[in-house]
């Protein structure tokens, strides 16, 4: 029942993810080099490379996490607005998605069940499914 609006922020985050992925792959390369340097008994460079690699991976994961959180916060949930139509004679009730031009108490075409009576829009509203957090105080 909800639509998610895509904003430019989502596009920015895609670029960020790309940069983060590049940084992450470079960090992995640094780690591999560290292992190689260690096997060659070049201890100080191996240590530096390991630190750079680990730091790069940690920072990449943190950035990805922050970015995903920000993107989630930037999505505006817009629930669908429904139009509720009723025949006052036979009581038939139907609902459909809102269309431009609909308004409450607008008379529509004749009811399919009782051709002498017109249907009427009795409500235009949205239904929010998720429950609000209730604080019992």
């Amino acid at each position: 029942m909800t639509q998610k609006q895509t904003t430019t922020a989502n596009k920015i985050s895609t670029y960020l993810i790309l940069i983060v992925l590049i940084a992450m792959s470079l960090s992995i390369v640094a780690l591999i080099s560290a292992v190689y340097a260690y096997t060659q008994n070049m201890i100080p460079p191996a240590g530096f490379l390991a630190i750079i690699g680990i730091f790069g991976i940690v920072m990449s994961i943190v950035s990805l996490h922050q970015n995903s959180q920000r993107s989630a916060a930037m999505k505006i949930e817009v629930p669908k607005v429904m139009t509720y139509i009723e025949c006052k004679n036979c009581g038939t009730k139907i609902s459909r998605e809102f269309q431009r031009g609909d308004f409450v108490f607008k008379e529509l075409d004749v009811c399919p069940k009782c051709p002498e009576h017109k249907q009427m829009i009795t409500g235009v509203y949205k239904e929010i499914k998720e429950k609000e957090k209730i604080y019992e105080v």
């Binding site: 505006i76 817009v78 607005v81 809102f98 431009r100 031009g101 609909d102 308004f103 409450v104 108490f105 235009v124 509203y125």
Partner: peptide, 27 residues
């Protein structure tokens, strides 16, 4: 701001908003 954003969409389509409850009762 989020409320105004939702309002803008409602106004552009002509949907009743929460504030329309008074006129709805009168109608």
């Amino acid at each position: 701001a989020e409320a105004y954003s939702a309002a803008l969409k409602a106004f552009s389509l002509g949907q009743p908003i929460g504030d329309s409850v008074g006129p709805l009762i009168a109608s």
